[in-house]
Design a protein around this nucleic acid. Structure first.
Lengths: 186, 186
DNA sequence: TGCTACTATATGACTAGTCACATATAAGAG
DNA sequence: CTCTTATATGTGACTAGTCATATAGTAGCA
C-alpha cells in the first residue's frame, strides 16, 4: 500500500503529526502525486503503529489540543527501503471523459465539443497549479539530489497534463471537421 | 458511477449477458479505458436492474448454463444521455513509481535507474498492446462517427504511454548524469 | 478415469478511498 | 456575542474495486 509508504517517507524526513502530514504534505507538495483524505491518514498512522513501523509520542499542549508526534522505527526504515526498491503494478486510469467519448457518437457535435472544452479548461488550470510549484529546474546545478527527484516527478505530472491538453485540442478539431458530422436526415 | 454508465452504453449497442460484457468488452476494446472485474460487472448489473435502467430476460439453454440477457429500458436510455452530457471530476492518478522517485534520494543511482528501466519496459509493452488494436486512423474517410470517437479515446491512451516513455528516458538520463550523484564520503 | 478449459452466474471477504460528522480549545473578526 | 478559522484527533457509514471461491454442465484430451 503506497500511502503507508509515502507516510513512512515523510516521517523519515522529519517527525510529524497526522495534522502536519495533511496540511504540510498531502495538501501541498505531494498533492499532485498522491492525494489523501484526513481520515485515511489517521487510520494509516494507526495501522503503521500496529505494525511497529512507527511510534508515537504524545505532546501535551496547554493552549491547543494535544499532538501525537510520529517517528519511524528501525523496522519502518527497513520497510521503506525495501518498498522503494520493489516494483509495483502500473496504476489503472479510469477516466470518465474517455467513457463519455467512447459512447459520444449519439450526441450532437456541439455537446461533445462542449465536454472537451470544459475538460480543456480544467486541465489547463491543473497545469497552471503544477507550474506554480517552486522547485529548481532540471539543469540547475545547485539542486539537491532530493530536489532533482521531486522535480522529475513533478515534470511527469506536468507533461501528462500537457499531453492531455494537446490531445483535447486535436480531438476538438477532429470532431468539428466536416468528416465527423453526424449522419443527416435529408 | 462510470462503470454503470459504460455498461448502459454497451447494452445500448446490443443486448448482452454479464459474461458477454466481461469477455467481449471489458477484456477487449474497453480494457484500455476502463477495466472491470467480473464480480463488479454482475453486481452492477443487479444494481441497474434495481434502478429500472435495464431489464433482464432469462434465456434457457439445454447444453450450457442459462444466460441472463440484459436490455436497456427507456429510463436507462435517458439516464445514459444525461450522463454523457454531464461533467465529471478529473480522475486522480496515484502512481507508486512517482512516490518511489519522490523518496528515491536515499537510494543509490543504480537502484533508481533499475526501477525506471523496469517501468520503461512495462510502458513500452502497454503501448504495443494499444497499437495492436484495429481501428481506422484519424484521417480515414471511411471511418464511422463511432469509430472516430473510439479512435480518439485510444489515441489519448497511447499518447499517455508515449509521454510516460519519453519522460522515463529523460529521467534515466538526468539521474545518470554526473550532477545527480549521491554525496560521496571522501 | 481424471484433468483442463469454456460457458455462465454468484457470493464472501477484503482493501483503498471518500464524505460527513463529532469533539475540543483558542484567536480574531464583525 | 456569535461566527469563522485554525489546531488537532477521531469514528461511522459508505462507494468502488479486487481476489478467491462456489456451482454446474459440456467438451476435449491423454
Amino acid at each position: 500500500m503506497s500511502l503507508a509508504h509515502a507516510i513512512l517517507g515523510l516521517l523519515q524526513q522529519k517527525e510529524r503529526t497526522g495534522y502536519d502530514l495533511k496540511t504540510d504534505c498531502f495538501d501541498q507538495c505531494i498533492a499532485h502525486l498522491w492525494t489523501a483524505d484526513q481520515a485515511q491518514i489517521y487510520r494509516t498512522l494507526d495501522k503503521l503503529v500496529e505494525q511497529g513501523l512507527i511510534t508515537c509520542t504524545i505532546e501535551i499542549q496547554r493552549d491547543r489540543p494535544n499532538r501525537k508526534v510520529y517517528h519511524v522505527t528501525a523496522a519502518g526504515n527497513a520497510e521503506l527501503t525495501r518498498w522503494l526498491q520493489g516494483s509495483h503494478p502500473l496504476p489503472t486510469i479510469r477516466d470518465p471523459l474517455l467513457v463519455q467519448l467512447f459512447f459520444a457518437d449519439q450526441l450532437p457535435n456541439e455537446a461533445v465539443i462542449h465536454l472537451l472544452e470544459q475538460q480543456l479548461a480544467a486541465r489547463c488550470e491543473r497545469l497552471a497549479e503544477c507550474s506554480s510549484i517552486e522547485l529548481p529546474a532540471l539543469g540547475d546545478v545547485s539542486a539537491s539530489r532530493q530536489q532533482v527527484m521531486q522535480r522529475l516527478a513533478l515534470e511527469l505530472v506536468m507533461q501528462r497534463e500537457q499531453t492531455y491538453i494537446d490531445w483535447l485540442k486535436t480531438a476538438i478539431a477532429a470532431i468539428a471537421s466536416p468528416m465527423t458530422q453526424p449522419i443527416e436526415q435529408s
